[in-house]
Amino acid sequence: MEAALTILLDGLQFSSYLFIVSAGLTIIFGVMKILNVAHGSFYAWGAYTAAFFIGKFSDMGLPDALGFLIIVAAAIVVGVILGFIIEQGILKHMYERDEVLIVLATFGLFLVLEDIILIAFGTDPYFAYQPMALLDSVELGGITRDVYGMTLIGVAAVVAVGCWWLLNKTKWGTLLKAVIFDREMGISMGINVPLVYTLTFIGGAILGGLGGAYIAPTISVAPGLGTEVIVLSFAVVVVGGMGSIAGAAIGSLIIGILRAIAVHELPQVELFVVFAVMAIVLVFRPEGLFAPAKPRKI
């Protein structure tokens, strides 16, 4: 019983983390048809920016509770600045080109952004443990858990509900869905598609940054942390179905919980299980569990 509760909580926590990062990836893909490899860099930049300022503010003697504000601010700043520069500076000029070429451009960007992190922040890891220390820990299921880690589940829920609300309950969502379904039709209906693209990209980037910023207090923020994340979130969106928020949620849950079970019961297969799920889904339902309908191109 205790073990089951622990596995469930571990799984949910990991799923939540996966979801926040992958939601941004899948939104950008759904609207713009761009598989953004540089998404891993948004994550890394979010983590670095948050860790840097949490440390700085703490050194200045400001209250540690500000850390939560910094996390949100870091995500927004990173998302807006990087997202805007990349979309306007590079991707905008590529929309007429092959989709796959755009993926490759984001791969080039990923390489560049990784090293700019090194130049900007140096090689030394950053620690931003203050927000985690502030929330303390609780006894749950016979073991100690840090409350901060569990708030991650709440953040993921907020992101999920927010996305759902935005897509289904607002005018904006309707416009987005129109563009997702048919870009040309959207343009002819008078939708400002370039603006929709820019905002979508920035929104996705903010989510990527948020994933990094929120996880920053629990890890040592060190170079190279974007490389792993992009692969994991990639597995999530493939399992769930590219471009679907619900898919990203389901994909995160499946992968997160299976991984938790593996770590507890059969640690040797922990990494393998993630990709095995991906392989099985690919073989039996290659378009993913929740893929949006794709009009056939003629």
Binding site: T6, D10, R145, A222, H264, P267
Partner: peptide, 22 residues
């Protein structure tokens, strides 16, 4: 019988820590 061998540079050990706590 449940020793952990995560991938090098994995960085996040939440589930591993739970498993070892139990």
């Amino acid at each position: 019988d449940k020793t952990q061998f995560p991938k090098i540079f994995a960085g996040q050990y939440g589930s591993e820590i739970s498993a070892m706590s139990l």
